[in-house]
């Protein structure tokens, strides 16, 4: 089962089918207001990234693919002078233009408080997902959703978002009245709802929990191990460059894949998903693109 899930559509795919994958999932995390490429005198990643180049790559992949989902795992805010001047609104505006389908809420989305978030979020024409944040009574509330469902040729993909625990990461004066709730309980609830009520065939968690800690703070590895039914965790927060997804056996004995694309928009992640007429996935392959290094 695990080996089957890991089958890439690269060299080994000759044995499968030359047909295009049914859905292509593209994703970023922790872009941190890096709208322009890293400057030439950057200590790391000089000349890489840039939202316009990412947009152009996404456009190209859209032209080659049957269906594309474009997702982000949070921390769009903070990191360059763009954020100092515009507070995230330019990022959300441009992500809307590029056709992002959803994003998670990162801790830096609170850097200007719930009011600042709400002001920028007006520019987002895509859902912002945080199942385990209770923002009722705050200006953030109307801009947050728990889950969405996307359907492609009858194949239903459920997507929900998880946010990190505030303690030590977001100061109380910034998260305002927003309350954090247990990610395991809410992920279990979302997954059950998406599987049973929304009849989803594939579940994606957009997580800003972080890949892995040794400290007891909830992370994607623990989430994958404890919650049944999630197929793919697109993670963020720890800025981890995972060259390929890490598979974790979940309580059902299935494999939950975890991926994360570093930060700053240096990489665009890609997962291709194929399914049959009975909406059973039969292949999942992955790759990533480094934005601005060489040519296709």
């Amino acid at each position: 089962m695990a080996a089957g899930l890991m089958t890439p559509l690269g060299a080994g795919a000759k044995l499968l089918t030359p047909a295009k994958p049914n859905v292509t999932i593209l994703y970023t995390n922790d872009t941190h207001a890096r709208l322009d490429p890293f400057p030439d005198n950057a200590v790391e990643f000089a000349g890489l990234g840039g939202i316009a180049r990412r947009a152009s790559l996404v456009k190209k992949i859209r032209s080659e693919s049957r269906h594309v989902l474009l997702l982000d795992a949070g921390d769009v805010f903070q990191g360059t002078p763009w954020f100092d001047v515009y507070g995230g609104e330019v990022d959300l505006k441009l992500m809307s233009e590029m056709g992002y389908d959803a994003m998670a809420v990162g801790n830096h989305e609170f850097d200007r408080g719930p009011d600042g978030f709400a002001e920028a979020a007006q520019k987002a024409r895509f859902p912002i997902l945080a199942a385990n944040y209770d923002a009722s009574g705050t200006p953030m509330n109307e801009y947050l959703q728990r889950l969405i469902v996307k359907e492609f040729e009858g194949f239903r993909i459920g997507i929900f978002g998880l946010g990190i625990e505030f303690n030590g990461v977001v100061s109380p004066d910034l998260h305002g009245g927003v309350r954090h709730r247990d990610p395991i309980a809410w992920a279990t609830g979302m997954t059950n709802s998406l599987r049973q009520y929304h009849k989803c065939d594939f579940i994606i968690c957009l997580s800003h929990l972080g890949f892995q800690y040794g400290s007891g703070r909830m992370d994607d590895m623990t989430l994958a191990e404890k919650v049944a039914g999630i197929d793919l965790i697109i993670g963020g927060h720890t800025h981890t460059f995972l060259d390929y997804p890490v598979g974790v056996v979940n309580p059902d004995g299935d494999v939950t894949q975890i991926t994360q694309m570093g930060h700053g928009g240096v990489r665009l992640g890609r997962i291709d998903l194929s399914f049959n007429e009975r909406n059973q996935k039969y292949a999942l392959s992955d790759r990533y693109y480094t934005i601005g290094e060489g040519t296709e």
Binding site: A2, A3, L5, M6, P8, L9, G10, A11, G12, G50, I51, A52, R53, A55, S56, L57, K59, K60, L94, E97, M98, E225, D243, Y244, V246, G247, V248, V249, V255, R267, S285, D286, R287, Y288, Y289, T290, I291, G292, E293, G294, T295, E296
Partner: peptide
């Protein structure tokens, strides 16, 4: 509890490729 990286037949499957031209509309 990881699925083993040895299962991966060909690491070249993840070889990065790039796309340098900025999208004119977004720019």
């Amino acid at each position: 509890h990881y699925s083993s990286s040895e299962e991966r037949p060909d690491n070249k499957a993840v070889t990065a490729t790039q796309y340098p031209e900025p999208d004119p509309e977004i720019s």
